[in-house]
Amino acid sequence: MSSKCQAFVGEKTKAAEEYHSADFDFFEHKTAVDEELARDPSAYHVAEGVGPKKQPIVAEEEVWEAFHARDNATARFYKERRYLLLEFPVLTTQDPPQHVVELGCGCGSALLPILKENPGAHVTATDISPTAVQLFEAAALRAGIAPERVRAFTCNSADAGAGESLLSGLEADSLLIIFTLAALPPKDQHTMLSNAFKALRPGGRLLIRDHGVYDITQLRLRSEQKVAENLYKRGDGTLCYFFSTEDLAAKAQSAGFTTEECSYVCVQLLNRRKNFLMRRVFVHGVFRKPEA
């Protein structure tokens, strides 16, 4: 299943040709992978005998600050995620004007398309990395976004204190957590979701897109990179967790949300350089804060 995406194009950006969300069936994919791994446990490993480099133990803030300062210094590591406007149509609501908050904004790849395509929206952006926040503010300025539509600040949204001091009372209509929850261990995921609950108005929605179980990325990680069930440590020291839909919904509900949507997004992509077909699995969630 795919949807045309030409309606959501920022100035001087190229339209996405199609948005794919169901290129293959998740459960058929899971069965095939399980059968292949039963025959050959190393079927998806790309570098036999080569493990990840041992990383020093550093604070999460330092890991992500180093990433944005080193690998994302131009704020172009991630392309604008224009597909989110199709994934979450509530982000296009113009009457009444929307307040959208993002926890873990990075350089703004999720918020910039919203600001460009929904002229009445204003946003609050937070990230654990000061460099990421600065990159987002600079990108918004380059895009001609009026400064009064953007508020951005450094915040560890997986810290319980931030939920009381910085996030509580924001009264957001929608709150995005896009490929950020997976960067945390489960105990911190609960704190971030609880903080998201505090930042939303009654009736507001939490919108999540993140890594799903049986994604090719998970399958290619080696056993020595596994920290806990579905939690891995990458070579650069960052964490990556892979969600099932049941897991994601249960965690959102434990933070006080009700589930409106929770499903797998299955996208098939061709790595042209390596002529390798990749089956990507993501989780999609829409959760609502109950009315007061």
Score class of each variant (00 low, 15 high):
S3G: 00
S42N: 15
K53S: 08
A110D: 11
T92Y: 00
E260N: 03
I114E: 08
A146P: 03
E102W: 04
S244V: 02
V63T: 05
E61Q: 12
S21Y: 12
K4P: 12
E60I: 01
L170P: 05
L85N: 00
G235F: 01
T245H: 03
L85C: 00
F24W: 03
I114D: 03
C5G: 03
R39A: 12
E80W: 04
V227N: 08
E117K: 13
Q268V: 03
A38F: 02
P202D: 02
F136E: 04
D71L: 14
G204Q: 06
G108S: 11
H99S: 00
D40W: 11
V267K: 13
K54I: 13
A38K: 14
D34W: 08
E148K: 05
P130S: 11
D127M: 07
E224G: 10
Q225N: 04
P52W: 03
F243Y: 14
R288I: 00
H45R: 10
Y44T: 14
N195E: 09
N195M: 07
K251C: 00
R209A: 05
V265L: 12
S42H: 15
N156V: 05
I208P: 06
P185M: 05
Y19V: 15
Y214I: 06
H190K: 07
L111Y: 08
F24Y: 09
L167V: 01
I145V: 15
G285M: 00
D188Q: 15
G235H: 01
C155A: 12
S3E: 08
K53W: 08
L207E: 04
H20V: 00
H190A: 14
E224I: 09
A196N: 05
Q253E: 15
S3T: 03
T93Y: 00
D173H: 13
L221E: 10
D247I: 01
G108W: 03
K4C: 12
L239Y: 13
Y78R: 13
V46Q: 15
V50F: 06
G161L: 04
D127F: 06
A43H: 15
E291D: 13
A199D: 07
A75Y: 10
G49N: 13
T126C: 10
F136Y: 11
L207T: 10
A199V: 09
V227A: 03
Y78D: 11
K4R: 15
L86E: 07
P185S: 03
A146T: 11
H211L: 11
E80Q: 08
D25L: 02
I178D: 13
A7M: 13
G163M: 09
A160V: 07
V283C: 10
G49R: 04
E171A: 11
R220F: 00
N156Y: 07
T259H: 01
S157P: 02
A172T: 10
K198C: 09
L248I: 01
A182K: 07
F243L: 06
V286Y: 02
H45S: 13
T217A: 06
V33K: 11
E36K: 15
V101R: 05
L85A: 00
K274M: 12
G256T: 06
A138K: 13
A15S: 12
S21C: 01
P96R: 03
Q55S: 14
A132V: 15
I177M: 15
L270Y: 01
A158C: 09
D215N: 08
T31W: 07
T217P: 08
Y241Q: 04
D159H: 06
E65W: 04
G104D: 11
L103N: 02
P290T: 08
E61L: 07
F67G: 02
E60F: 02
D34I: 04
F67R: 08
